[in-house]
Write a protein that binds this DNA or RNA. Structure first.
Lengths: 73, 73
DNA sequence: ACTGAAATCGCAATATATTGAGATTATGAC
DNA sequence: GTCATAATCTCAATATATTGCGATTTCAGT
């Protein structure tokens, strides 16, 4: 999962929950600028920042053995 | 998954692969100090740094809906 | 206990994320 | 097209990760 994909996942989840960037930022106690950057894939957030945002959205990170292309679906 | 657990996952995987911190750092093009901090759970690495290290170890990040305690195992 | 390798620590220098405030642009509803 | 809201951008200030080097401690094997 790339930085860009992570940003997209956050954005989709946020929209699904029906909250805007400002509200998410407030709930996660980060600046809205930070949320914007991460969702756009332009950000290179610190792990704590990312985890806080994910947690706020009811999401979590898992670490797995890298999946090879031919294994997908 | 917490910062600490991520550090442990990296450490275990590294040992399983039989490489030391310095070698991992070199392969991932980061400073050994950075690897040390992350593995110890003291670090708050930037996402790019974390992804590079995980990738070097053949690991990847996945984002999932948070698992509730009573759902575990 | 000895030895070599691995892991950890300390610190200053540098790079980069984060923040805050305001301005600008997109987007959707009516 | 208008209006309101959401999203994005700019820029300076601040906080914090990263690096490099050396020193120190820990650890495993003999």
């Amino acid at each position: 999962m790339t930085q860009q994909e992570i940003g997209n996942a956050i954005k989709e989840r946020r929209k699904k929950l029906g909250v805007n960037q400002q509200t998410l930022a407030d709930l996660a106690s980060v600046a809205v600028n930070t949320v914007v950057a991460i969702e756009r894939g332009e950000g290179n957030p610190q792990l704590a920042t990312l985890l806080t945002i994910l947690d706020t959205l009811g999401l979590q990170i898992d670490i797995n053995i890298k999946q090879l292309d031919y294994e997908k679906v």
